Amino acid sequence: MASFLVAGGGTAGHVNPMLATALELRERGHEVAALGTAVGLEADLVPRAGLTLHEVPKVPLPRRPSADLLRLPKNWAAAVGAATRAIEATTADAVIGFGGYVSTPAYRAARKAGIPIIVHEANAKPGLANRLGARWTEHVAITAPGTPLPHATVTGMPLLPPVRDLARKLADPATAQALRSEARAALGWDAGATVLVVTGGSLGAASLNAATVGAIGDLVAVGVHVWHLSGRGKADEALAAREALPAALRERYRVDEYSHDMAQVFAAATAVVCRSGAGAVAEATAMRLPTLYVPLPHGNGEQALNARPAVNAGAATLVADADLSPARLLQEATRILEPGTARTMSEAAADFGITDGAERLATMAEAAL
């Protein structure tokens, strides 16, 4: 058995696949520890998963002249030093990085230590850390085809066990029907209800919320049940819209700020409207869900690129954030919820989605030794 140090932090996009891979490696009998910061999401989630967190200082790489740029050499040396000490403390045989500011010093420390580096890139457009790491290794995993990194192998996204296990159960039609019926009944809805899930993630998405509030009367009037996850602190307008619905239709619109059990949300869904972070795309396709993606309009455009392979495969459709309106949401949602279209998109998602990403990446890591 071997010892692995997994490195990733900051956002769920880095932390969740890191934890999924770590849990798979631990299941195989390996020793696993994590490298992260004291302030990112990993500071909470890594200990919850029963893993030791070795801390490394956060060192953003400035893209323009600033005070951070002047402090970079000292901060970089401190981060590489912390990563080196973590490798020594865990007697790590290899480092697996998932991008972000935690991975860069981890890759450098692993190279200095002469141990293998394994890179996992979630997004269609790789970040700076993984572009650097991929220059130092031939063990590069990507989530979907087309990500421009050398030596890349498509492994899919490592999914956390609850999501992975549900995705596998949904592959069996009889089991899927029973699970979906059970999830809808738990919400007080009919087992055969048509359910549209709208989510902008834990922080919410203003455009998705506004479009949903504007379209909700028409959606519930045609029999659609909507589960709207508004984001923390952003439910007021949705709750007001729910109260304004006729009493007979009000029960078709459920509003929550956030769900700690996304497996239950996916189980209840007929189709989904969401942003197109790499994790969202991987989970929706693994669950065989027809999806309308509304990519985040900011940043480097990676979300639109993340969604494109699933759209090209016929598993999803895409609307630009600027083009989303209540009328457009109503039009697209009713189209993907139409039984024939939903079935075709679900079959395409089944062909495109990957449920064993953690297993594939763990096997790559073992082979790197």
Rank of each mutant, 00 (worst) to 15 (best):
V6N: 00
V6F: 05
G8I: 02
G8A: 01
G8S: 02
G8N: 01
G8D: 02
G9Y: 02
G9T: 03
G10I: 00
G10K: 00
G10N: 00
A12K: 05
A12G: 10
A12F: 09
H14R: 08
H14W: 04
H14P: 00
V15S: 07
V15M: 04
V15G: 03
V15T: 04
V15L: 06
N16D: 06
N16C: 04
N16F: 11
N16S: 09
M18I: 01
L19Y: 02
L19K: 04
L19G: 00
A20I: 09
A20W: 04
T21M: 00
A22D: 04
L23D: 12
L23F: 05
L25P: 09
R26F: 05
R26Q: 11
E27S: 15
G29V: 02
H30D: 08
H30G: 04
E31C: 05
V32G: 00
A33C: 02
A34W: 01
A34R: 00
L35E: 06
L35H: 00
G36D: 09
G36L: 07
V39S: 14
V39R: 13
V39P: 03
G40I: 08
G40A: 09
G40Y: 11
L41G: 08
L41S: 08
L41C: 03
A43V: 08
D44R: 15
D44P: 07
D44H: 11
V46Y: 03
V46M: 03
P47R: 04
P47G: 04
P47K: 10
R48W: 06
R48L: 13
R48H: 03
A49R: 05
G50N: 14
G50T: 15
L51M: 13
T52Y: 08
T52V: 11
E55P: 07
E55N: 11
E55T: 15
P57H: 07
V59A: 08
V59P: 06
P60E: 13
P60D: 10
P60K: 15
L61A: 04
L61K: 00
L61I: 15
P62W: 07
R63S: 11
R63A: 14
R63T: 12
R64T: 11
P65V: 08
P65N: 03
S66H: 10
S66G: 11
A67I: 14
A67P: 09
D68S: 13
D68V: 01
L70M: 10
R71S: 13
R71Q: 11
R71W: 07
P73D: 12
P73W: 10
P73A: 12
K74C: 14
K74G: 13
K74W: 11
N75R: 15
N75S: 14
W76K: 08
A77C: 07
A78V: 06
A78S: 14
A79I: 13
A79P: 01
V80E: 07
V80P: 00
V80Y: 02
G81C: 05
G81M: 09
A82L: 12
A82V: 14
A83T: 10
A83M: 02
A83K: 00
